[in-house]
Amino acid sequence: MSERLWRILVDSFPKILLPGLKMTVPLTVIAFSLAMVIATVVALIQFAHVKVLTQIARFYIWVIRGTPLLVQLFVVYYGLPKVGVVMDAFPAAVLVFSINEGAYCAETMRGALESVPVGQIEAGYCAGLNFVQVMRRIVLPQALRTAFPPLSNSLISMVKDTSLAANITVTEMFMATQRVVARTYEPLALYLEVALIYLIFSTVLTWVQRMGEKKLSAYGVKEARHA
């Protein structure tokens, strides 16, 4: 490797990592947290068969899962100003990513809720618990445990998908890399460098996921539900 290339890589490293820490990570953390709230609410609405709301929930999931994330970003950031809804790039990205991720995770959560045996819910009622108590004490703890691995996967995917936010001018890691490339004309080395940083982020999350799963398996449940 030439000395020039080496210097470019070293110099650019903080220029790429910093936007990563300042934009990519907050975008992921905030949007995913909101997505979890949306997903839980939407999944519970369907699980409890709340009448009109269930229809709305299905419609929401249908639309979001049926359209590309990139198109959703463009509609919100470039389209909505035409009807007077103007947003900065970062909040627009948070909004779109949380709504998008919320739809996918809602399906994961609904599946997890439905995987809790009906008999345990009935046993809860027979013990005198009401609906909310049964949900909080019996159903949700088991559903969250079931949903943990797939939700972790969603989070890891999301870290990578935030690179799409570059398209609506959010200066996250990928856009920062593009800028350095434009100055130095070293696309191969620099794109590999940013790929490596994404890989490190994902690896850390995978590691956290493993620890979480180990902790959750303390229930003594032997069967592997996600084998």
Partner: peptide
Amino acid sequence: NLFSNKTALQNVTEGLIIA
């Protein structure tokens, strides 16, 4: 139909404490 996220003891106390 025991609650699989609870121990034997917690299965019994659930209706006492919560309900």
